[in-house]
C-alpha cells in the first residue's frame, strides 16, 4: 500500500546510483538490486555507448531518473530543448517518477552547473512552483524535488528552508525527494536542528529518500558523497522513515567510489529501518 499519494512505489526498496566504474561488475555478475537511479544528463545524448549501456540495464533492472540541471528555481523561462530531450529519455526508461533539485543554476542563458540555493522568499516560491508544474505537465510524469545542501544563507530569506520546501511542493502539488544527508550538512553549516527539519517536512509528500556521506572541514561541512553514511545521518533516516513510512531509498556515492559490493552493502543497511517501518504499518492495519 502506498505510504502517501506521491509515494506509489513503497515496494521499490533500496536503490543504488548507476555509475561507470560499476558497469563491468553489473554486467558480469548481474547482482540483485531493487532499482538503479541514473543521472538523466549522462544519458541525454543522441547515441553511442551511454544509451547502449542504459538499454542493457533496462532489460534487467528498474530505473529511476534523477536530474542535476533542471534548475526549477531559475527565474527565467524553461529551456524546451532540454525538456524535449528529457522527455525522450523518460519514454526510454519508463521511470515511474522523476526528481531534480530545489535550486537554481542558470541565468540569461548561462549555466553554473552547480546546485545553487534559493533565497527563501514568497517570490521564489511562486516562481519555482510555477516551473515545477510546467515541467510536470510537459513530461507527463510525477515530479519530486530534492532539498539541496548549502553553504550560504541569504539576507532576503523570509522563512526557514523546511517552510520554503513545504510551501513550494504544496503550491506545485509535487512530491519531495528528501535528502537526509543534505539536511544534516546544511544544519551543520547554518546551525539549525536537523531533526526539526525532518519533523516539519510534509511527510505526506515524501516520495523518495537519499542517503549519502559527507566531509567535515575546519569551518564547514561539505556534501561530498565520497564516504559511507555517517551515524547522525542514519539517525535522521530512521526518524524520516518513522514519519513517512516505507519509502524508496537511494544511496549516493559519487567520488572515491569503492567496489559495487561495498556500495550495495552500505545501501542495504537502510533495510533495518525500512523493515521496522513496514512492521509498524502492519500493526496499524491490524
Amino acid at each position: 500500500m502506498p505510504a502517501n499519494r506521491f509515494n506509489g512505489f513503497t515496494d521499490y526498496g533500496i536503490g543504488v546510483g548507476l555509475r561507470v566504474p560499476h558497469y563491468e561488475h553489473i554486467f558480469a555478475e548481474r547482482p540483485v538490486v531493487d532499482w538503479f537511479e541514473i543521472i538523466s544528463e549522462n544519458y541525454m545524448v543522441d547515441g553511442g555507448r551511454p544509451l547502449k549501456i542504459l538499454d542493457q540495464i533496462l532489460e534487467q533492472y528498474r530505473v529511476v531518473q534523477h536530474g542535476v540541471s533542471m534548475y526549477f528555481g531559475s527565474a527565467q523561462p524553461a529551456n524546451y530543448e532540454h525538456l524535449r530531450r528529457l522527455k525522450e529519455l523518460v519514454k526510454r526508461t519508463k521511470t515511474p517518477w522523476l526528481s531534480d533539485h530545489l535550486c537554481w543554476g542558470s541565468v540569461d542563458g548561462r549555466y553554473t552547473h552547480d546546485l545553487l540555493p534559493l533565497p527563501y522568499t514568497f517570490e521564489a516560491i511562486r516562481t519555482t512552483a510555477r516551473r515545477i508544474r510546467e515541467v510536470q505537465d510537459f513530461l507527463e510524469i510525477p515530479i519530486s524535488v530534492e532539498n539541496v545542501s548549502s553553504y550560504v544563507e541569504f539576507q532576503e530569506s523570509q522563512m526557514t528552508e523546511w517552510e520554503f520546501l513545504n510551501e513550494v511542493v504544496h503550491e506545485a502539488d509535487c512530491g519531495i525527494l528528501l535528502d537526509v544527508n543534505n539536511i544534516y550538512v546544511s544544519s551543520q553549516n547554518h546551525g539549525f536542528d536537523p531533526f526539526e527539519y525532518v519533523n516539519s517536512v510534509a511527510a505526506d509528500r515524501v516520495a523518495q529518500i537519499h542517503i549519502a556521506g559527507h566531509s567535515k572541514f575546519e569551518k564547514y561541512t561539505l556534501d561530498t558523497h565520497d564516504h559511507p553514511v555517517l551515524d547522525p545521518v542514519w539517525r535522521m533516516y530512521a526518524r524520516a522513515i518513522e514519519r513517512v513510512g516505507p519509502t524508496a531509498t537511494l544511496l549516493e556515492w559519487d567520488d572515491n567510489i569503492p567496489s559495487f559490493e561495498e556500495v550495495h552493502r552500505e545501501a542495504l543497511k537502510a533495510n533495518q529501518y525500512l523493515a521496522a517501518a513496514a512492521s509498524k504499518s502492519l500493526e496499524v492495519l491490524a
Binding site: 546510483g17 543521472i39 549522462n42
Partner: peptide
Amino acid sequence: TSDIVSNAVV
C-alpha cells in the same frame, strides 16, 4: 571516464 554527479568539488 566519470559521470556528472555530485555538486561538491573541493
